[in-house]
Design a protein around this nucleic acid. Structure first.
Lengths: 133, 133
DNA sequence: TTTCATGGTATCCAAAAGGATACTACTGAA
DNA sequence: TTCAGTAGTATCCTTTTGGATACCATGAAA
């Protein structure tokens, strides 16, 4: 197979198995919440747990904690605990984390192109959406 | 919220619900197999079902069929059936599909950076990998 | 006439991802 | 003495995703 972004044999990095660097990236920043979290930290460089939660009203506490820990353990963000009462914990992107911002921006642009091509409706649209399937 | 790549209200496009164009992109090209399929079609512009399958030895027939149908229905690739026996079906990227190649390349680059940062091991590495967690 | 190859379906099942709910620790204020 | 507020855990449950297996249609070759 090619050279520029080759797909090679099965390998492992930080406990994730994959065959291709692209797959690894998806494992690191994929999923329902991680892109959103990183995106919010792009706009506001330092955020508390509760602030992040407010920007994603439908995420549960458990999921937010879990996703933040994974992002931290993969070196995409830092977690700073202040020994205060009530507790304060602040999250911020690392350099590595900032490295994925261009990708998120590219995803955004593609999404917009896709929307332009197929049209968008408000989430509660009754018909038409189902008809497309 | 911001303007450049704004996160807005809940909306829908082609049956997928999301709050952000980026999320939509993930719904369209995310998952375990779609990026791989698109990547292979980047290297080889037209591929038969069986050829695609050979490049991804661990995908099952069902998953390949399913992912290809979704990619087709989202306009990322074309499916051409030749009325022959044995049957021949060819898949190729559309313009829209080619639009995500830069994103996959960016994902690849990030993955490589990640690998450089944390180190890679062959998939069967016995210890060390688990120790990292 | 049986076998082979292609490109599938259909059915059932396992694992992973995601979510709801209830609970904790801490301390200062009412 | 009870309450509020932050940042969590723990447990159980549902949904989604992915996979194993068996099956089908066709026509040419053996």
């Amino acid at each position: 197979m090619g050279e520029p972004g080759t797909i090679c044999g099965r390998r492992r990095c930080r406990g994730k198995e994959y065959s291709c660097s692209m797959e690894l990236s998806l494992a690191v920043i994929g999923g329902k919440w991680k892109p959103l979290i990183l995106w919010h930290l792009r706009e506001t460089p330092t955020m508390r747990f509760s602030a992040l939660r407010r920007t994603m009203p439908t995420i549960t506490q458990k999921m937010l904690t879990q996703q933040l820990r994974e992002l931290e353990s993969d070196g995409l963000l830092t977690r700073t605990v202040f020994a205060e009462v009530p507790p304060r914990v602040e999250y911020a992107l690392t350099d590595l984390g900032r490295g994925i911002i261009p990708i998120l921006e590219a995803l955004c642009r593609f999404g917009k192109e896709f929307e332009a091509r197929f049209g968008v409706e408000p989430a509660d649209a009754p018909a038409a959406a189902a008809a497309q399937r």
